[in-house]
């Protein structure tokens, strides 16, 4: 009998309140969840204890820090736009179309997730570098992305794209194509059904994927330093600035790290409030 509200909620597609479903959670879940949360929280708190609070403002507003923050925000935003533009079609193709070697294609698309970023940087170097696979064609066209901001965006897109594909594809597959089928029987053309049915349904996953991409791009370090180099205002993003400052001014490195954490928290918090608000209405 206690299952009733849940079943009803599933049938009507409405959510049961967390207070009600908490009764179904086994007792061992909570302590382990707390342990997991501590693993994440303790290092963050430990970092907070090393921050030179008195000089925090000065440390994060030095010209080099400001240049790094500005560059990081610009490049991460550009990389996120690319992730949406490229990742949405990729996820739809993987979730909705059949073609030979699809499993292999999916695995390859997700490789940047498991690849150490430095290796990713080397791979980019061998592909787009001046002596890379496509380097000759690029220089023939007069394009030289070596040591440019474009190289930073390319590296960030490379490492962040799988997050978009993964998030969106699993949402699309879980959701199925039944509603699109109904739309088609009612005479909706593919483009119209995509805009009015598929897009609204995948919206929460799209927001989650976008946030993950931005966060990953913001934290990207290895591929950037290997592929793009490090020059203030051009290629030295916040993680690279932190890495450099750590050598000479650990206080500045810690302050910048905290700033990066705050930026990430604000973005993640902001983006995750919207979709849950929508589905509760």
């Amino acid at each position: 009998m206690t299952l009733m509200p849940d079943v009803k909620a599933r049938v009507t597609g409405r959510r049961t309140s967390p207070a009600r479903v908490a009764g179904y959670v086994p007792g061992w879940v909570l302590p382990i969840a707390i342990l997991g949360a501590l693993l994440v929280l303790v290092p963050l708190v430990a970092m907070g204890t090393r921050v030179d609070w008195a000089n925090f403002g000065t440390l994060v507003s030095s010209p080099s820090a400001l240049a790094a923050v500005g560059l990081s925000l610009r490049t991460s935003l550009a990389a996120t736009v690319w992730c949406v533009l490229l990742g949405v079609p990729m996820a739809i193709v993987l979730a909705r179309m059949d073609f030979p070697f699809k499993a292999l294609a999916r695995t390859l698309v997700l490789v940047p997730l498991v690849l150490p970023p430095v290796v990713g940087g080397l791979a980019l170097l061998y592909a787009f570098g001046r002596r890379g696979l496509l380097g000759g064609a690029f220089s023939f066209l007069g394009i030289d992305i070596a040591f440019s901001t474009t190289a930073v965006v390319l590296a960030q897109t490379f490492v962040a794209l799988p997050f978009m594909v993964l998030t969106l594809e699993s949402a699309l597959r879980a959701q199925g194509a039944a509603y699109e089928g109904v739309a088609a029987t009612l005479g909706a053309r593919r483009g119209y059904a995509f805009r009015t049915v598929t897009l609204p349904l995948m919206w929460p996953a799209l927001v989650a994927g976008t946030v993950l991409c931005f966060a990953r791009a913001l934290g990207e370090f290895g591929a950037t330093i290997t592929f793009a180099g490090s020059l203030e205002g051009v290629t030295r993003t916040v993680p690279l600035e932190i890495y450099l400052q750590r050598e000479v001014d650990p206080d500045a490195a810690v302050a910048l790290s905290l700033l990066l954490i705050i930026i990430a928290l604000v973005i993640v918090g902001f983006a995750y409030r919207r979709p849950s608000g929508r589905s509760e209405r």
């Binding site: 170097l125 570098g129 002596r131 070596a146 040591f147 330093i225 490090s230 020059l231």
Partner: peptide, 18 residues
């Protein structure tokens, strides 16, 4: 064109021809 954090990174950019 780039100010690296370590001499190894400088050498890497030159050995790769970048």
């Amino acid at each position: 064109v780039s100010e690296e954090s370590s001499v190894t990174d400088v050498l890497g950019k030159v050995t790769s021809g970048q």
